[in-house]
Amino acid sequence: MKKNDVIMIGIIVVIALVALCLVNLYGKWNTKDAQAVVTIDGTEYGRYPLSEDRTVKIESENNGYNLLIIEKGDARIEEASCPDKICVRHKPIDKTGETLVCLPNKVVVEIENGEEADVDASTN
């Protein structure tokens, strides 16, 4: 390895770590009345608050489906019709910005804030 390699690797790792901290802190501080927002191919399918337990069968084209389970304040996909099952193996999500993705079905589950929470936060 050359010196340049080490410098370049260092820069990438620092950027990644800083981004990781920012993303995590942002998620932690800004998660309020979180909702799981489901989109298929970019169009919204539904939004479900994480505070209520429920099971949603997300039906996409070509008989595809993903079984979304909201339980104890987090969301996960229990079952899916896709071959790779990446979304099923994903850890449960509960922070703003976290996503579950099923590429074959073009399904994205994203955590968003329910209300415009930052108004309250800034007046506190």
Partner: peptide, 12 residues
């Protein structure tokens, strides 16, 4: 593909 930029969450 999924028309959703939130995937960049995984990048770090």
């Amino acid at each position: 593909v999924v028309e959703n930029s939130s995937l960049f969450y995984y990048l770090p």
